[in-house]
């Protein structure tokens, strides 16, 4: 993994990387990815990608059950006012 790839991944993950991290991360990640690569030895063709024991989706009834304690949600917001969560202006 080179630094361009690292930067692309960091951008996708919305992680700012410090200069120190830019130096350290590629090496550590490469080591881990090399270890992970041993999976390639296994032939998995035709093998389902889920466990046999995984069940089926249960469906909920369409009946309203409001939470009610809105302040418990808004109280954790770094910036909340006039009924809205606020963020830096989005420019489209």
């Amino acid at each position: 993994m080179d630094i361009t790839q690292i930067e692309k991944i960091a951008e996708l993950a919305r992680l700012h990387l410090t200069e120190k991290e830019k130096k350290e991360i590629p090496e550590k990640l490469t080591e881990i990815l090399e270890y992970i690569d041993q999976l390639k030895e296994l032939d998995t063709s035709g093998v389902p990608a889920e466990l046999e024991q995984s069940g089926n989706l249960r469906l909920a009834e369409d009946i309203v059950d409001e939470f009610g304690k809105i302040e418990a949600l808004t109280g954790n917001a770094p910036d909340f006012g006039d009924g809205f969560f606020r963020v830096k202006k989005i420019i489209e």
């Binding site: 993994m1 790839q5 690292i6 991944i9 960091a10 996708l12 993950a13 992680l15 991290e21 991360i25 550590k28 990640l29 881990i32 990815l33």
Partner: peptide
């Protein structure tokens, strides 16, 4: 962060 990077990749 390391794991987020691996997972994103």
């Amino acid at each position: 962060k390391r794991r987020i990077m691996i997972g994103t990749y």
